[in-house]
């Protein structure tokens, strides 16, 4: 995809989503009350403004000479001060040297799996496994330390939130429930 189109793609996506939401808002079912604005007015105003910004941004992007930065991308007070001080790069968000999209995908998948299974496996077991897995995905290579930190972390969090903050964390279903209950007995949590 040409660079210019790639730069404009997020605005096209946002424009399409805003248009769809505008359509949804126009279908809100309500009975107008004398003289009062309906529940659709505020969201529709927001969505119209969103679409205007997207259209302006896309138009500016298409009009800009090839290879130029977006018209407003270099603006802003912070960038100005940094530039005047001769340290523009300190205030800029520089692209990292390396990206690990696979690790990111695994991290998101692990988080989704943790939330999805928390009610079944319980806080103690689920948190230990999740913390350990995320630490390894985060390129921490001292597996022994990771295991100890994950185990201790899960137990300390369980103790602090159940015993000190009186939070009712998920204990899971059998057979994991018995593990949670045993740990709770050990910690003196009722």
């Amino acid at each position: 995809m040409p660079q210019r189109l790639r730069a404009l793609a997020p605005y096209v996506v946002v424009l399409a989503i805003a248009a769809y939401f505008y359509y949804v808002a126009s279908k809100f079912a309500f009975t107008p009350r004398g003289g009062r604005l309906g529940p659709d007015v505020w969201p529709r105003t927001i969505l119209v403004l969103t679409m205007i910004v997207c259209v302006l941004r896309i138009a500016a992007g298409l009009r800009a000479p090839r290879g130029d930065a977006p018209a407003d991308a270099d603006g802003g007070l912070i960038a100005d001060v940094a530039k005047d001080a001769g340290h523009a790069s300190d205030a800029a968000t520089e692209a990292p040297a390396e990206r690990y999209p696979a690790r990111l995908a695994i991290g998101i998948a692990l988080t989704v799996a943790y939330v999805a299974t928390l009610g079944v496996v319980g806080f103690a077991v689920g948190t230990f496994v999740y913390m350990l897995a995320m630490t390894v995905v985060g390129r921490y290579r001292r597996y022994g330390v990771a295991t100890i930190v994950s185990l201790t972390g899960a137990l300390v969090l369980m103790f602090v939130f159940m015993k000190v903050v009186y939070l009712s964390l998920p204990i899971g279903v059998a057979p994991f429930e018995s593990v949670s209950l045993a740990l709770m007995r050990l910690m003196g949590v009722r």
Partner: peptide, 11 residues
Amino acid sequence: LGGGSVANAFI
């Protein structure tokens, strides 16, 4: 005031 793209900030 935040800096960067004003269009992105509005969105």
